[in-house]
Simulated assay, not measured.
Amino acid sequence: MDGETLQETARTRAEELPAVELTRPFGPEHDVAKVVGKMFLLLTEVRGRPIVVLKADPRDSEALRQAHPDITPGYHMNKRHWITLEPGEDLDEEMIRELVTESYLLVVERLPRAKRPVDPATVGPRPDGSSAS
């Protein structure tokens, strides 16, 4: 998948999720998706290549990086909790959509219940097939 399609797929999925705000706190070349003020997605470029940076459970992050050459540690983020999706042949639209959803859910689950825009269990399956809890 080329970088433009990668970012557009991630952006579209993020915009579909409840209470998401797209911002540019780091400048016009960096799009950030937040839920209730908490970041879960970064769209930027590294050496002229579009990338997507997402929050990930540390165990999932490691497994994803081992299984997929187009998934690397989070660019300019905590390498245990963030992953970078890079252009290449390894990722498809469904996987990108699932990883964006998972990133969103990780943030929502840590919000106080009163501030959660949705019950994380109702948003959909996680990439590993389990329900959000």
Rank of each mutant, 00 (worst) to 15 (best):
V108L: 14
E29D: 15
K115C: 07
A63R: 13
K55D: 11
P50K: 11
S130H: 12
T101H: 12
S130V: 07
I71V: 12
G129C: 11
Y104K: 00
L105S: 06
P58A: 06
G88D: 10
L43V: 03
E86V: 05
V32Y: 11
E45S: 11
D70M: 00
E8F: 05
A132S: 14
M77L: 14
P112G: 08
D90Y: 07
F40R: 00
Y75R: 03
E16P: 00
F40N: 02
T101E: 13
Y75E: 03
R116K: 12
D2I: 00
G74R: 02
T44R: 05
V52H: 04
L105I: 01
P127D: 06
Q66H: 14
V107W: 02
P58W: 11
E62T: 09
R65M: 13
V46F: 10
V53W: 08
W82M: 03
L41N: 02
Q7C: 11
V36S: 14
H81F: 13
E94M: 10
G124T: 02
A114K: 15
G3V: 00
E93M: 01
L17N: 02
A63I: 03
S103P: 05
M77D: 08
L105P: 00
R113A: 12
H76R: 04
S103V: 06
L99D: 08
P58S: 09
R65H: 08
V52D: 01
V32G: 04
I71A: 08
Q7T: 01
F40M: 05
L54E: 08
H30R: 05
D90R: 09
V107M: 02
D57F: 06
E8I: 01
T12Y: 10
E15I: 00
A114S: 12
G37K: 00
